[in-house]
Nucleic acid binder design. Structure first.
Lengths: 212, 212
DNA sequence: CCATAAAACTAACAATTGTTAGTTTTATAA
DNA sequence: TTATAAAACTAACAATTGTTAGTTTTATGG
């Protein structure tokens, strides 16, 4: 540790790995900009937020943003694609795991809660502004979204066949569960210090066992 | 009937009520514009849709729109306020009715499905673009939304006390149910010819009794 | 203190925005 | 046919948009 951390500076520290000396920032200015953008996008949507709005939130001028980012579009795609990949990775692990279908649904609920607690601002863009992604990223996102829903649907169908899930319209089950999980980002920040473990338990109960 | 409909024209008909002769349109050009706008707003959001986009969808030039509407803002507020008032009226009737809490929840689910079937495009604006309403309409909308949620919450709390609803976190019940109902507009148009009565029955079952 | 790089700045651009003014076309009733 | 009103048009405006070029300031390590 003592020869790992070579020297601290204001925004980061130097670090030698083998023969290389590299500079590592605590959090890059770029990431700060992206985080600030996510908050603004959540409030007004991507299209209504101007680069001047974002600059003002950062306490700098609009042109200065371009020392750190390539374009407004890059900010949006970073926010959305990072999150979508997080969901994809999580879902793939759950789908491949050797547990029954109801347990898989519980893991999915847990995944959504974890991601929401970590980045509820970014989820607003993922839910509402994905259509403003450009060509390649739009297609990539849409594929991830499609695959995610298909994995979810397969789990429900298997659960129905196995008798773990009550017979009902598959699409209604998929839609009603997913819509609640996807909207968590709107609701969670309004709750003061709710414990993640309790939230998971209650959400699982309400979504799976109902309320009456 | 025969002396009620006086004369037909291309876009409407003349009609005498008592001593007055009035001209009634089948559907006003204004309403056509608002309907077209709702579709575009659903696809890209209010801020990303330009008056030239809307004009092109109507097959006319942007300036021509202003023969029928006052402003872009008027279109948005008409879409949202009309729908919000519809929900408010429906909820007030349900809250005041002499039925038990679970029956009230069933009526609320039915209300959301009815409104969604009638105007799923407009609901996109209500859900995603309400923050772009201006001063007075924004306050009016926010009050209606607050009151609606408060009515919903009261019904759930009463249901819990009466033992009609299983003990659980009130906020989670309110949030998870409402988020599904509010997102119906995204899901319903993708389903081909699903019967409203069956949809209501299944939604009530999934939301109230759960899936396992 | 000095050299360098990171990060801010000013000024401006070309395109697009909602909207207005004034004019022409189209539809209607007599 | 003719007068009128509805609804389209062209042309333009002032403001705002994302972004670039070029310059100055600030922070850093030696």
């Amino acid at each position: 540790m003592s020869d790992f951390y070579q020297k601290k500076t204001t925004n980061g520290y130097y670090c030698n790995i083998y023969q290389y000396l590299i500079y590592m920032k605590v959090e890059s200015r770029k990431q700060e900009i992206i985080n600030a953008a996510a908050i603004l996008f959540k409030e007004k949507g991507y299209s209504a937020v101007t680069m001047r709005d974002l600059a003002k939130a950062m306490g700098i001028k609009a042109a200065s943003l371009y020392n750190h980012i390539q374009s407004k579009q890059e900010i949006l795609s970073t926010i959305i694609i990072d999150l979508a990949e997080e969901f994809t990775t999580g879902m793939n692990a759950i789908a491949a795991s050797d547990i029954n279908c109801v347990e898989k649904l519980e893991k999915i609920i847990s995944l959504h809660i974890d991601v929401t607690l970590r980045n509820s601002d970014g989820l607003a863009s993922l839910n509402n502004d994905w259509m403003h992604l450009e060509e390649e990223n739009l297609l990539y996102f849409e594929k991830m979204r499609r695959d995610y829903e298909e994995n979810f649907r397969k789990i429900v169908i298997k659960g129905l066949k196995a008798g773990e899930i009550k017979s009902s319209n598959v699409e209604i089950i998929v839609f009603s569960t997913l819509s609640t999980l996807r909207t968590l980002y709107l609701w969670y920040p309004k709750q003061q210090n709710i414990d993640a473990a309790i939230l998971k338990k209650d959400m699982i109960s309400v979504l799976l066992k109902g309320i009456i």
